[in-house]
């Protein structure tokens, strides 16, 4: 087992981080335990639950399925970057109002997946929202209030 460390430089929520990591370190562990951005959650570490979803160069990706070294030179966004200081993003606000979260463990991943979805689908119908959401597991809510929240956010973002 080689424990050789590699220097990487990753930009997260607009801030550049230079670190050295083992080749085997998961990107999710790197974000959570090296950068201490623990808003990105880990539910399965095998790519199914979606809790660890981040944006990798602007696109949703599962950080548990990548190594930190693969992020070298790339741009990452996490849930901590969604709100503008204390002002929630439209989707965060809608999730609050529609009761789209219970334990909140799945929530960061869902916010990252669905914020991206809304950016490219400004006027989705319920079925489209459900399809986009179907890769993120939530065990608490039964999804209905999350769907409501996404539709509400879409409506508000259209203005």
């Amino acid at each position: 087992m080689t424990t050789e460390r590699h220097a990487i430089s990753v930009t997260v929520n607009g801030v550049r981080h230079d670190k050295t990591v083992e080749a085997r370190m998961l990107l999710s562990d790197f974000i959570r335990h090296e950068l201490l951005l623990s808003g990105t959650h880990v539910g399965c570490e095998h790519g199914v639950c979606g809790a660890c979803t981040i944006w990798f160069d602007g696109f949703p990706a599962r950080s548990c399925l990548m190594f930190a070294v693969q992020a070298d030179g790339h741009d990452i966004a996490t849930v901590e970057g969604l709100a503008d200081n204390d002002k929630l993003s439209p989707l965060q606000q809608a999730m609050h109002e529609a009761h789209g979260l219970q334990c909140g463990y799945c929530t960061p991943g869902i916010l990252m997946t669905m914020s991206h979805f809304l950016a490219s689908n400004p006027a989705p119908d319920e079925q489209a929202v459900r399809e986009a959401l179907s890769g993120n597991l939530c065990r608490c809510t039964g999804y209905q209030h999350i769907v409501d929240a996404v539709l509400l956010a879409a409506e508000r973002m259209r203005g």
């Binding site: 951005l37 849930v79 609050h96 009761h99 909140g104």
Partner: peptide, 21 residues
């Protein structure tokens, strides 16, 4: 009533077990 706990959960600031260092 909308939930008091949401703000922390929505912004990634709520403390879960694996967040403890």
């Amino acid at each position: 009533v909308k939930r008091n706990e949401d703000q922390r959960l929505l912004t990634g600031q709520a403390l879960f077990i694996d967040d403890i260092e």
